[in-house]
Every structure is written in structure tokens, then in C-alpha cells.
Computed example of a mutant assay.
Amino acid sequence: MGGKVMALIQCPNCGKEVSDKAEKCPNCETLLREPPKKVCKECGQELNEGVLICHKCGCPVSTETSERGSKKKGSKKLIIIAVLIIAALLIIIFGVNSYNKKVEENKKIEISENYGINIKTATTTMLKGASDAEKLGVLIHDVWSNTIFEKSDAETDMYTKTDGRFNNDFNDSLNKLFADSTYQTRLSAVKSNQTNVERIMKKLQDPPEEYQEAYNAIKDYYDAYLEIINLVINPSGNLQTFTSNFNDADSAVVKYYAAMKIYTE
């Protein structure tokens, strides 16, 4: 295979070997030859740098160098545009992340506010139901007791007496009470209240961290509430055990309602 072999010369300044075609030493950058002069391709006239038209024959001067400069400028513009696009994308991404973070924070605030409202609603709804149940429980006790001890009372005589005489069996008196339409309406209101409370309590599951203590407190309140509700819906045992259990449940409701005030006021 044929081909030209590159010749090496020594740099007059540093003595390093360089190509005989090099215009300057790559080691010390000493000029090894004068750069070729620009000449008109048409007439050979030597031209000064920057001339666009030959002053001798009028031939346009090659714009290869200018084109290279334009390409370099074009490349710089592309780089600048790319940087601006990247910067814009980063700004957009940052803005979207900030927006999503703000939305998430607002969502947490909304959840917390709604939870606080549900805590208050559950507390007051249970108080209303327990209060209504307490009145029914007292009426059950009085009908039960007045039948056994044959005590006349304007509110209970219609249940404890038949033809003006006390019933021999307190169960007869209680059955008359439970069959009474007014009592049934009041008892239905208590049961409806219980349904509403259960619905609200389901919403209170998985509380936000700041409401964990309130949730623990309202669970105790709910247990006491259920106890007094169940005693009215299904009274059982004898008069003494019913009275004792009812009084304990009533006291517990008052106690735990008072404990809930620090979370609802």
C-alpha cells in the first residue's frame, strides 16, 4: 500500500518533534510557519482579511470562514435555547411540585377540620341520645318499682294498674309500657339516634395524628353511651341490678362527656 509518510521536525523553541505540516508547536505554541495568505480564487490577488470582493477582478471572496463563524454562532444559539428550555422545564416541575404540595397541605387541613366537626357532632349527638335514654330508663324503673311496692304515681298508674288495682306481676306493667305508642315513639327516636351515632363513629376511624387523644376519649364516651342505650332497649335482670347498671351507665356518660369538652370547645 502506498501513501505519504508524515515527516517530523524539531520545534526551534522547545525542541519537541512535531509534524512538518503543523502551523504551531502543540507543546509551546510557537508558530512554525506563517498562516497561508488569503488569495482570490479567480485572479490570485492577495487579499486582506475581511474583504468580501476582490479589488482587482471583482470576484466574490469565499465565505467559508464566515459560514463556519455562522455555524459556531448557530451552535451557541442552540445551546442557549436548550439551556433556556431546560430552565423552563425545571421551573415548571418546581411549580407543579409546589402546587401538588400545597394541594396536599390543604387536603390535610380540610381532613383535620372535617374530623374536628365530626368529633363535635358525635359528642352532642350522643349526649342527646343518652339524655332521651335516661328519661326512658327512669320511667322503666318507676313502672317496675311502683308495681312491686304498689306506689301510686300520675305518670305510671296507667301502666302499673288495671281497673284501678296494681298488677300482681311487674312484667304486665312493663309490657303495657313497652306497648304504649308514646313510649314506642320515644324509643324509636333513641334507636334512630344510635344509628346516627354509629354512622359518625365510622367516620372517626383512622384519626389524624392531632386527634388521636380525642378519638381515644370519644371511644370511652361511646362505650358508656351504648351501655345506657342497650339498658333501655333491652332491660333485663331484676329491679336492683337494672337500677345499679343504669346508674353506673348514666354516671359514666356524664363523666366521659365532661372529658370530651376539652376537645370540642
Rank of each mutant, 00 (worst) to 15 (best):
I93Q: 14
D163G: 10
P12G: 13
E17M: 04
L174T: 02
K76G: 08
E210H: 07
Y263A: 06
K77N: 11
K16I: 09
K203Y: 07
N196Y: 07
P235A: 05
D153R: 11
K151C: 07
I140R: 04
N234G: 03
N168H: 13
P207N: 04
P35K: 13
G237T: 01
L174F: 11
I228R: 00
Y256M: 01
E67A: 05
Q10F: 08
L52R: 10
G69S: 10
F166Y: 13
I81Q: 07
M1V: 14
I9T: 07
K71S: 09
S62D: 14
P26C: 05
K77P: 02
V51H: 07
I117S: 02
T241C: 03
R186A: 15
A259C: 02
K41A: 10
K24L: 04
E265A: 09
Y215F: 09
I262N: 06
A22G: 06
I9W: 03
C54D: 06
C59T: 15
K161M: 11
D220H: 04
K255H: 03
R199E: 02
K73M: 11
N48M: 13
D220Y: 02
I119W: 05
E46L: 14
S66A: 07
D142W: 08
G116R: 03
D163P: 06
N167W: 11
I200T: 02
Q240Y: 06
L187D: 10
L239T: 01
Y225L: 00
N13A: 12
I228N: 01
K21N: 10
G116D: 13
Q45A: 15
V197P: 01
Y115F: 12
E198F: 05
T156A: 12
P12Y: 04
G164W: 15
E46T: 11
P60N: 07
A133C: 06
Q184Y: 02
K219A: 00
L78W: 11
I9P: 06
D132I: 01
A259I: 01
L231T: 04
G3A: 12
T124R: 01
A249V: 02
C57Y: 07
E104F: 12
E67I: 12
F166V: 10
I148Y: 09
F242E: 07
G44E: 15
I53M: 11
E209A: 14
Y257T: 02
D223V: 00
F166E: 11
G15L: 10
I86A: 15
K38N: 09
Q10T: 08
W144E: 04
S244K: 10
I200N: 01
V5H: 12
N168Q: 14
K107T: 15
N171G: 07
K101C: 04
D20P: 01
